[in-house]
């Protein structure tokens, strides 16, 4: 579904030196897989995820989504992004709009649904995350967990084929992590293709089809969840796991 070929991402520092954040990543994500990416901060996890929908433009390399090379400047990236949902660490709900308006803005403005269809879909999705009573409030009155569940629903309103999660629980108070992970698990059970950057090892073990360990800008290790945690091959992963588990 998504094939990544030799992606490199360099950031220029203020002093002119170059920071090699991604040093050549090759990977293929198949339909229905749940890829969980873990690793130390600064290892390139988020940058890799953000490259998948071109929020970051790779310095070099190709990303093929459904047979289309999306790194080609001729590709209409907006059309591609309509098919890829993304959930951010800081929720990024639109502060000037109510919850319902947040959910229907993109489908309506992009003429994918008319307003009543979009509202119907939004309300039924809100019901699934038990937040239908929040439809008409502004994001500022919601808790972090509620915001993140609504951010997930906002992406789902576009009927995406794949969902990208960029540390979706890292900005939450501990007691709210569970409610967001539950929504993500339900989504996984429904067969959604997911790429999740997270520090939640329990989630990785339970939901992941594959777990990737990213450090120093490369995929250092890849394995099924069982083996990933019980038989780490590299010393880096052993050290990492001993710190987080």
């Amino acid at each position: 579904m998504i094939t990544v070929k030799n992606i490199v991402k360099d950031f220029k520092n203020m002093d002119g030196s170059v920071n090699h954040v991604l040093r050549g990543i090759d990977y293929t994500i198949e339909q229905g897989q749940k890829i969980v990416i873990v690793g130390p901060s600064g290892g390139g996890k988020s940058t890799f995820l953000r490259c998948l929908n071109l929020l970051e433009t790779p310095t070099s390399g190709d990303i093929i989504f459904d047979g289309e090379n999306i790194t080609d400047p001729k590709t209409d990236i907006n059309k591609v992004r309509q098919r890829m949902g993304m959930v951010f660490q800081n929720f990024n709900l639109f502060n000037n709009l109510t919850v319902l308006q947040n959910l229907i803005l993109a489908p309506v403005k992009l003429k994918i649904m008319n307003e009543s269809e979009a509202k119907e879909k939004a309300m039924s999705l809100l019901k699934r995350v038990n937040l239908e009573d929040k439809a008409n409030v502004y994001p500022s009155s919601l808790s972090g967990g509620q915001k993140q569940r609504i951010a997930i629903v906002r992406s789902l309103c576009m009927n995406p084929e794949v969902m990208l999660f960029d540390e979706p629980t890292s900005a939450l108070d501990p007691e709210m992590v569970g409610e967001v992970l539950d929504v993500m698990k339900k989504l996984a059970d429904d067969g959604m293709t997911m790429v999740v950057v997270t520090h939640e090892m329990g989630f990785a073990r339970e939901v992941g089809t594959k777990v990737l360990f990213m450090a120093d800008g490369i995929i250092m290790e890849e394995n099924t969840p069982d083996k990933f945690f019980t038989e780490p091959k590299t010393q880096r992963l052993k050290d990492f796991l001993s710190k987080v588990l």
């Binding site: 929908n53 929020l55 907006n78 059309k79 591609v80 992004r81 309509q82 098919r83 890829m84 949902g85 993304m86 951010f88 800081n90 990024n92 709900l93 639109f94 502060n95 803005l105 993109a106 403005k109 992009l110 951010a151 906002r154 992406s155 576009m158």
Partner: peptide, 18 residues
Amino acid sequence: VDNGQMEAGRSLGLTKAM
């Protein structure tokens, strides 16, 4: 305005102008 607002809009497929 937090840059995340623009990123969220773009990630949904909205254009920069929208």
